[in-house]
């Protein structure tokens, strides 16, 4: 996860990120890692297990929101922390991926902030100079 994979965006009350990817599947995987970096530290998670993730939605924007909400549910509900994602199938209304990670251990996985949810606020997915760029705001 390099510094060019994503950057943090300001919001008066909450926080957002701008993620970059060469392809849409890469953009979606990096967006998930950007969100998890705000909540915790993905690098502290060991890729001990593979978790299958699949989401369908109405269009590309809502697919991104629903995908991130799926990852957040695994993190906050199933208490699994991920190190990385491998997208296996992708179209604008569906994504299938494998999340590499392990069950959360409060002693090894330091939490930063509780991410409540993913919002549609100023949501953007666009192509800029040969790269896919996503901007997403999270409720903190």
């Amino acid at each position: 996860m390099g510094p060019r994979d994503f950057e943090v965006l300001e919001h008066p009350a909450d926080i957002g990120f701008r993620a970059f990817g060469g392809t849409l599947p890469e953009l979606f995987a990096r967006s998930a890692l950007a969100m998890l970096s705000i909540a915790a530290d993905p690098a502290a998670a060991l890729p001990k297990q593979e978790y299958p993730l699949a989401v369908e939605s109405g269009d590309r924007e809502s697919l991104l929101v629903d995908w991130l909400n799926e990852v957040l549910y695994w993190f906050d509900g199933k208490r699994i922390t991920f190190r990385d994602f491998r997208v296996t199938q992708f179209r604008d209304t569906a994504i299938e991926a494998v999340g590499m990670g392990e069950p959360r251990d409060p002693l090894r996985h330091r939490a930063r902030l509780i991410v409540k949810a993913v919002t549609y606020h100023q949501l953007k997915i666009e192509r800029r100079g040969g790269l896919w760029v996503a901007e997403v705001y999270l409720d903190i």
Partner: peptide, 28 residues
């Protein structure tokens, strides 16, 4: 948080049926 997430999605999918259009999807 999950209840709100679930129902923002429900409302987004049903707005066309109810002939509602909005300036911001988060108002769903």
């Amino acid at each position: 948080h999950q209840v709100c997430t679930d129902y923002v999605s429900v409302m987004n999918q049903s707005m066309a049926k109810h002939h509602i259009s909005l300036p911001d999807r988060q108002l769903a």
